[in-house]
Amino acid sequence: MMVAGNVAEQRSMLSFLAFIGTSIIVIVTPGPDTATTIRSTLLAGRTGGICTAAGIAVGQTVWALATSVGLAALLVASAPLFLIIKYLGAAYLIYLGMLALYEALWPPEQSLGIAVGHHPHGRLSPWIAFRQGLVSDLGNPKMAVFFTSLLPQFAPTGGSTFSSLLALGIVFAGMTFLWLAFYAAAVHKVRGALQRPTVRRLIEGATGMVLIALGLRIATEQR
């Protein structure tokens, strides 16, 4: 009995370590979450980036909860509902991209002749930064597909499926927050050099095009 228990614990530990390794690969791969966090950091500094990262992590926790109770599986199985969320999420990313392009082409601080750091419209409030991260993540139905396909593979057998899936999802969301918060801190360190008008406009334009491209990819790709 004790040997069997030790074997089960070892298998659970190996499964958890495999989950951590897989999660790291997924999390560090650039995507909509990274682009949204970078833009928030450029507009509102480290606080803005961290608030966006927190919104993304909360969104992932919601997806984890939906996966645990079976709602995410129903969403994946329902083609009309899946398409609605997919198109809404893609439209939101495209909207953020268009907003970034607009600010790149017509920066408000130039027309007013004041510095970016003191221009209120060139910054995001913490709540708006959080909301952008939350909405962009909840509007990505690929998270439902990802969680419903990934989490059950690493859930330990014999335990509560609900608690196991939710715990893994929370761990994934926590890792995502730490990575994006680190990303925000790194971008913030060089933010001063990036705030020169020409450089900032180039970065805003590039970020806008990336967000639009990501939105179009989400809207057009198959499950």
Rank of each mutant, 00 (worst) to 15 (best):
G133P: 13
L88I: 11
A206M: 08
I203M: 12
L71S: 10
P141C: 05
V199T: 13
L65S: 11
R200L: 00
A193T: 10
F162N: 09
E109R: 13
G192L: 15
P141A: 05
S68Q: 12
G169V: 01
H119E: 15
S78P: 06
A64H: 03
R196T: 13
H121P: 00
N140M: 04
W179V: 07
W106V: 15
A155D: 06
P80G: 06
A186R: 08
A66G: 12
V116D: 13
H118F: 14
N140R: 01
W127H: 01
Y87F: 14
M175E: 00
W63D: 02
A72G: 08
L99Y: 07
V69L: 14
L81Y: 12
G158L: 07
F177A: 01
G70R: 09
G205C: 00
L178K: 00
A129T: 04
A104M: 12
R123L: 09
A100F: 01
F154L: 04
G159D: 12
V199E: 03
F172L: 03
F162M: 14
L71V: 11
T67G: 10
L124G: 02
M98T: 07
F162S: 10
V145C: 08
A104V: 06
L96Y: 03
A173P: 04
A155W: 08
S160P: 09
Y87R: 12
F146W: 04
G113I: 10
S68V: 12
T198K: 08
V62W: 11
L83S: 15
F177D: 00
A173I: 03
F130K: 08
H121Y: 06
F177H: 00
D137M: 12
V76Y: 08
Q132Y: 13
H119Q: 15
L101S: 06
P107F: 02
A167D: 06
H119V: 09
I94E: 07
L134Y: 04
H188W: 12
S160V: 04
L202I: 07
S136P: 11
A73P: 00
Q153Y: 05
W127L: 14
L65T: 07
G158T: 06
A129C: 03
L75D: 02
W63Y: 13
L81C: 10
I128L: 15
M143Q: 08
W179H: 06
T157I: 12
V171E: 01
F130E: 01
P141W: 01
